[in-house]
Design a protein around this nucleic acid. Sequence first.
RNA 1: GGAGGCGUCGCCUAGUCCGGUCUAUGGCGCCGCACUGCUAAUGCGGUUUGGGCUUUACCGUCCAUCGAGGGUUCAAAUCCCUCCGCCUCCGCCA
Length: 425
Amino acid sequence: MIDLRLLREDPDRVRASQRARGEDVALVDALLSADERRRSSSTGFDELRAEQKSLGKLVGKAQGEERAELLKRAEQLKAAVKAADAEQHEAAEEAQRLLLQLGNIVHPDVPVGGEEDFVVKEVVGSPRDFAGEGFEPRDHIDLGELLGAIDVDRGAKVSGSRFYYLTGVGALLELALVNAAVAQATAAGFTPMLTPTLVKPEAMAGTGYLGQVEDDVYYLEKDGLYLVGTSEVPLAAYHMDEIIEASKLPLRYAGFSPCYRREAGSYGKDTRGIIRVHQFDKVEMFVFTRPEDAEAEHARLLEWEKQWLTSLELPYRVIELASGDLGSSAARKFDCEAWIPTQGKYRELTSTSNTTEFQARRLSVRLRDENGTRPLATLNGTLCAIPRTIVAILENHQQADGSVRVPEVLRPYLGGREVLEPVAK
RNA sequence: GGAGGCGUCGCCUAGUCCGGUCUAUGGCGCCGCACUGCUAAUGCGGUUUGGGCUUUACCGUCCAUCGAGGGUUCAAAUCCCUCCGCCUCCGCCA
């Protein structure tokens, strides 16, 4: 959520942000009047309550007739205080309800527009010329089958569409990727974390995933728990309701966990293979920092993502997403997209968002410095989303005979193996 | 799943039986000041969090906050109910 004070002082800025997101601008005025009501009802309650308290003290001391007189007055106050309290609660809840619907303030440099209006910031490496090398590249499904690495048929048999097994070298490849990614993160000063994947509604809502993307979230009704779509959720909520000494910041965590996504509304998209699946593992970077350091940290997260993709020897590009494609928590977002040869296009592999104080306000995570307490900033970035990374590695590093060259960074984690060879059927 | 115990403003803790003097006690830690060759010790003061008003800083002031939410009462840390968390024991499972 944003700061109500900002809304009061500069509502035009909030309106402009909502407009850029393609979201409801009228919400701003509804919120302004709800806030007005909240403050006046709070004042009303405070005054009545103060009177009740001082009267109560007099009652305690008074005797006889004086006491009876005071009791009569106090009795009348009782109802008024109760009504004012109810009004105050209602007004506060209404303001809060509206406030939670408001997206984060879009960063001024973000290109305005929808999904197609992203800006390419950088292109790293170049796609291989398979025609020049004299063979037609196989897609990751064919390669996965040849290598005995991916089994989508049995994934569908056991769990349904968009599920899969990683088998043999496929399973080893995931473990190697996870180890290499965690090693990079640890070297950069991140604390490795294994997180819960079932979380309470507060954690889910606090991170901003119960708004327009709620349909994409698995929910266990019997237990009132949500399955997380990313370890960003348990990492963000890790410090929920805490005040952190500013001297301890930044706190950098590298979470590894399964991620669950219903992929509602994506019927027909990426139905083949493991590009878009209901369950996958991911190494995620998450940072708590001072608001004034957030932009620099965002740049660092992007650099770590680039370092990772470069070490995997993949051709990729960096794009900045447009305002309409940000998601409610993000003020600004960059994606790294790797080249997928058989699709002839770049596909998202990693994504990093600056969520400024938006999540911290919702989760009540604050910092304390010499000037007191205030919300801090949170940021997140993918280090390695396993299935898509496997797709990119198999397709980009394949050789004419169906074998796949192992990028050097992974070899220590694959027993020194330099090539993944097709297995006999 | 069953039984019992506990939850107080960073940590520990008094208060809860018997409602008003709680504007929540004391210690530790921390911050400031004083004193002091240095350090230490000592003394004095401060130290939950959130919201409102005062210009949104300072200062001041009011309200809320004793795990959370309801209730009883003129008045609740204190009495009643529901829920949550932690601990112990029993059962079941690993």
